[in-house]
């Protein structure tokens, strides 16, 4: 049903590629988290500016709208790698071995199909807003202060391309699992029973006061 999942590693090529790609994915996800942080600071500046300097941040809404795609898309492959996109595992939860990985292959392939089409569609969306002959290459601008929108639109096909790479890698790993009959293949999020998933989720919230106290010492 939920969040976290476990990905095994070994020395095989697919696992090494998995970890290599994970580095990029983690970096992009961190960028997304930093954008949330920036959003928070932006509000502090805006409210502070309005209340203490009588001067609100010009184009505050425009800047929020530009930051949202960073937050929303940059972590998409990271979440797929770690099984972070939610699903119902009522059916896959009872499957095992080859049957399970065949089912995973089919649904992952369906996702890849969607993602490839979405790369095309979101690129077209970017392309309509981009014109090298225009000032700032812009053919679409924000409502209030008129900043170009093409950079934000470009983030979508970029993030989806990383996701496509991740999906191809997972498909490859599933093919290996099907051919070898492995019970717990590497480089893919394993289907865990709900209780294990919950335990992992809970581990993210280990008593913070203790931890920080230790950290402070």
């Amino acid at each position: 049903m939920a969040g976290g999942s476990q990905v095994l590693t070994d020395d095989s090529l697919v696992s090494r590629l998995d970890r290599g790609l994970l580095k990029l994915e983690t970096l992009l996800a961190l960028l997304s988290g930093l954008a949330v942080f920036a959003l928070m600071m932006l509000a502090v500046v805006s409210v502070g500016g309005r209340n203490f300097m009588g001067q609100p941040l010009p184009g505050y809404v425009d800047w929020i709208e530009q930051a949202m795609p960073l937050i929303a898309f940059m972590g998409i492959a990271y979440a797929q790698r770690n099984g972070g996109h939610i699903r119902m595992d009522l059916v896959v939860g009872v499957l095992k071995g080859r049957a399970l990985y065949l089912a995973e292959f089919v649904t992952t392939f369906a996702i890849l199909l969607l993602v490839v089409l979405m790369i095309w569609g979101s690129w077209a969306h970017f392309d309509r807003s981009f014109d090298p002959a225009m000032p700032m290459w812009s053919r679409d601008s924000s409502m209030d202060i008129g900043i170009p929108i093409w950079p934000a639109k470009l983030l979508v096909p970029v993030a989806l391309s990383v996701l496509a790479a991740r999906l191809i890698l997972q498909l490859w790993a599933y093919v290996q699992a099907i051919s070898t009959g492995a019970e717990t293949p590497v480089a893919v999020p394993l289907v865990l029973d709900a209780a294990t998933v919950a335990a992992m989720e809970a581990s993210h919230v280990t008593d913070p006061t203790e931890e920080t106290r230790k950290g402070a010492r």
């Binding site: 969306h125 309509r128 812009s138 053919r139 924000s142």
Partner: peptide, 26 residues
């Protein structure tokens, strides 16, 4: 509303309304 001109360009629908100020560069 801010994507109505895109929809016209794609051919998703045949008629639309929008406001110029939504996207001056368009």
């Amino acid at each position: 509303n801010r994507e109505n001109l895109d929809g016209i360009s794609i051919g998703a629908f045949e008629m639309a309304q929008f406001c110029a100020g939504y996207h001056a560069d368009k």
